[in-house]
Design a protein around this nucleic acid. Structure first.
Lengths: 67, 67
DNA sequence: TTGTGACTGCGAGTCCGTG
DNA sequence: ACACGGACTCGCAGTCACA
C-alpha cells in the first residue's frame, strides 16, 4: 500500500476515534479544513512538518501514522 | 528537537552504519546528491514520498527515521 | 459535515558548479 | 567526500466558493 494511502487510513481512523469532525481536527492541528479533507482522500503529498502537526494533534507517534 | 533535526541525525547515523557516502546513498534512494546533503544539514522539509524512499533505501521503518 | 476545482506564492527537488 | 551557491521547474502549502 502506498504511503499516502496508509496515512489517509490512519488519519481517518485516529480522528474518528477521537470523535472529531475534519473541521475540529483541522483546528487542533492548525491546518485548513479542506486540507485535512485532501489528506484523507489521498490527494496530497504532505511534508514532514505537516506530519509532525498531525501526529501532535492526535497524540501519536509518527510511526503510527506512516509505518 | 525539531523534526528536521531528528531526521538529519538519524539519516547520517544510518547512512554511515551502511558505510555509504552521501552520493552512494543518494543513488540507492533515487535522489540527487545535493539533496541528501541538504537533508543532513537540516536545510529542507521533505515530503513523505521522499521519506518513503529514504527509509526504503536504508531498510528501516519510517518511525526509525522520524520518531 | 465533507468533497472538489481553482487559484497564487513559495519551497521541494534537480542540476550545474566551486573550494 | 562533503558543504555550499545559483538557477531552474514543478508541485506543495494554504485558502476560497460551491455542491
Amino acid at each position: 500500500m502506498d504511503i499516502r494511502a496508509r496515512l489517509a487510513k490512519n488519519l481517518r481512523r485516529l480522528r474518528q476515534a477521537k470523535g472529531w469532525s475534519q473541521e475540529e481536527f483541522a483546528f487542533e492541528a492548525g491546518l485548513h479544513r479542506t486540507y485535512v479533507s485532501d489528506l484523507e482522500r489521498e490527494a496530497r503529498n504532505p511534508s514532514i512538518s505537516i506530519i509532525d502537526k498531525l501526529a501532535g494533534a492526535l497524540g501519536v507517534k509518527i510511526g503510527e501514522l506512516l509505518d
